[in-house]
Write a protein that binds this DNA or RNA. Structure first.
Lengths: 197, 197
DNA sequence: CAGAACTTTCAGAACTTTCTGAAAGTTCGA
DNA sequence: TCGAACTTTCAGAAAGTTCTGAAAGTTCTG
């Protein structure tokens, strides 16, 4: 919390110097650190998750400079990171109304459902879809061709795996098409499953 | 394929030297490499995934020595890797019927549903449950206490995130309790979702 | 209880990923 | 078209991860 003279009062909000500002900052820092840690477990780079956490939790559009200073990371990292978040559509670039200000400001998607769906979709593409695309190539031979018992056993295992993947793929598609309807659907599901045992 | 004089004919199966053996080996190798690659995307070490792939696709119990040679990895790696797979309950240690043979043999779970459930459960524990456990600590203050607007906004976002996590957690529990009923469950889900739009 | 037959551990080597910051690139107003 | 104000790139540094293999540990047999 250096008293650095950065341009940090773009908006007209009367920023009353509340004693609570530090409390919020501390809570934000806890969130940023935690989200960064979770990011590493979700296969996202720590710094990417941290930048996202900062933008999400403040809700405000921030410039690269501000992010750099707040998280103490390099200009280069901030740039790369924002590019990724932008591609993932978790962060949007917005321009200041002030035409003289040429910086880009970055604002995080605030709808938590959209956030989760975006993450889930990205993970499915990366971690699941290749199974369906490539597993077939791990068979010994065409379905119809003559095979020894061992070959049959091998191909059968690959096929079981493929079938399972296709099943989950269908399930995932059903869910992702449902949008928010999933909330209602899950209640029905719970009732149906609960009553049948 | 060095002609190393390892004891590799434990069972009484008449191992006829078919020309197809190489084809199977090649298919196994493709599978092992692919599974290893996918492993890295699923947050599993490449070598762990490779050992699992080998044990899964052969279906036979193999000794550490055999795994070492087949995959060209060190004794140490094989040991660590098997320990992990054992903890995950994806591989079991079995002993040869031959009392004189003191090696441990390692055999992979063959039921693909169990395989996926095990992986899913492990990932949920690692990547999801911490959200529910720790997110609360990222709030500014107790629900009831007096707060400024900014504090309220912050806590509200954390709460939204928490609520969403709890929802998915419930859904995951519902599904995992359903066991193989999931297949039926997913059809119900699809019908319910499909009819509502 | 000795020694053979295995398995586990762990320090350091090899490799991979991520980060930094200076330099190059882009965009815009005058 | 110039130069100020930003953003992006990229080579090399730092950090992090995974692997190796020799040595230590364990368990069993005789």
């Amino acid at each position: 919390m250096k008293p650095s003279a950065t341009s940090s009062d773009r908006d007209a909000t009367p920023l009353t110097a509340l004693p609570s500002v530090d409390e919020i900052r501390a809570a934000q820092d806890r969130f940023i650190e935690f989200w960064g840690e979770m990011g590493t477990r979700w296969g996202v780079q720590r710094s990417v998750a941290e930048v996202h956490a900062l933008l999400f939790i403040t809700g405000e559009p921030l410039s690269a400079e501000e992010i750099m200073e707040r998280l103490s990371i390099s200009r280069g990292s901030v740039s790369t990171t924002l590019k990724q978040l932008d591609e993932w559509e978790l962060v949007q670039r917005v321009r200041s109304k002030d035409r003289a200000d040429r910086r880009e400001y970055h604002q995080a998607e605030q709808d938590v459902w959209k956030l989760f769906y975006t993450i889930l979709r990205a993970r499915k593409r990366r971690e699941f879809d290749p199974l369906i695309d490539e597993l077939g190539g791990c068979r010994v031979a065409q379905k119809s061709s003559r095979k020894t018992d061992r070959q049959k056993q091998h191909d059968q295992k690959i096929d079981e795996l493929l079938e399972l993947c296709r099943f989950f793929d269908g399930l995932a598609n059903t869910i992702s098409k449902s949008g928010k309807g999933i909330e209602r659907a899950s209640k029905i599901l719970a009732r149906v499953l609960g009553s049948s045992r």
